[in-house]
Design a protein around this nucleic acid. Structure first.
Lengths: 161, 161
DNA sequence: ATTGAAACCTAACGTAT
DNA sequence: ATACGTTAGGTTTCAAT
């Protein structure tokens, strides 16, 4: 399940198409990518089995769900407590993403809250209560943009083999 | 297209189901959520039109696409140049996300690169070349976890109205 | 008014050859 | 690539609450 084998240009086009529209039918995907339908089925299955495509999901605007306050929270962690602290962070409500990083802090956590009050509670009551958390800093997110095409953008200027 | 009106518990269940599996058929979604198929169609359309659901996409593991090096890059920006700089950042290859934040820096950029060399190029040649960018700092991402359920997790403990 | 149940034709699925 | 039985997509109608 962890080949890093062969993702050819056709696979790249499949991924690009499915990232743009995750509910695309296999038929229109196949014709859009100029392969047969059977081939499309086989490739999609292979991409899922090999762990390249990990799933499909609906993209949601947090503000429209009443989650108007987003923030990054940097977390400093005591030595040798990475794993349990990261697990604890993941189970805090409002936490969307936990990244362990190499910086003057150790983890960068993305949170989605209803309002400043819930953010305060999340940071001060939930995150700082985790054993092993030494310090936090909170950076409010004013505006955010996702680039849809990072996964398949580079034209692979290296003809490596 | 920007109501923040009524997202009831049924909508929440729909969103949770579609976040877990973005390719769920409307039929199985309807029975899983205990509504009629016609109702499911109507609600999905409403959630899309109102901007709550912004799209559907395939989730991809960057490492399996040859993008083994991920990083956060903090960017300090000259006063009054937010907009063009943010736009320029978004058009840099390897950039996945641009967030404007309130911190000692102004933007936090997520990048996905093949290797350290491409990261170096992205940061030093592409990002620092943008007019208005004053300084950057790069934090390597060692490990990263997405929490799938932030959008519908909180049980809304506040009976606000 | 909003929902659920049923019916309907078309299109896509998934597999096999 | 074609064909084939099965399932889902969309839409409409109608009854019920």
């Amino acid at each position: 399940m962890t080949d890093r084998a062969s993702v050819d240009e056709v696979d790249q086009r499949i991924i690009r198409a499915l990232r743009a529209d995750g509910r695309l039918s296999v038929r229109s995907l196949a014709e859009q990518v100029h392969i047969s339908r059977a081939n499309a089925y086989a490739r999609i299955e292979r991409l899922r089995d090999s762990g390249v495509i990990t799933g499909f999901t609906a993209e949601v605007a947090p503000e429209h769900l009443g989650l108007g306050t987003s923030a990054y929270v940097s977390v400093s962690i005591e030595q040798n407590t990475w794993k349990p602290v990261a697990a604890a962070l993941r189970s805090v409500p409002c936490v969307e993403r936990v990244a362990l990083v190499g910086a003057e802090f150790d983890a960068l956590v993305t949170v989605r809250c209803r309002d400043n009050h819930e953010l305060r509670d999340t940071v001060l009551e939930q995150i700082q209560a985790i054993p092993g958390v030494k310090a936090t800093r909170t950076w409010l997110i004013f505006e955010e943009t996702e680039v849809h095409d990072w996964a398949t953008a580079p034209p692979a200027r290296d003809p490596g083999r």
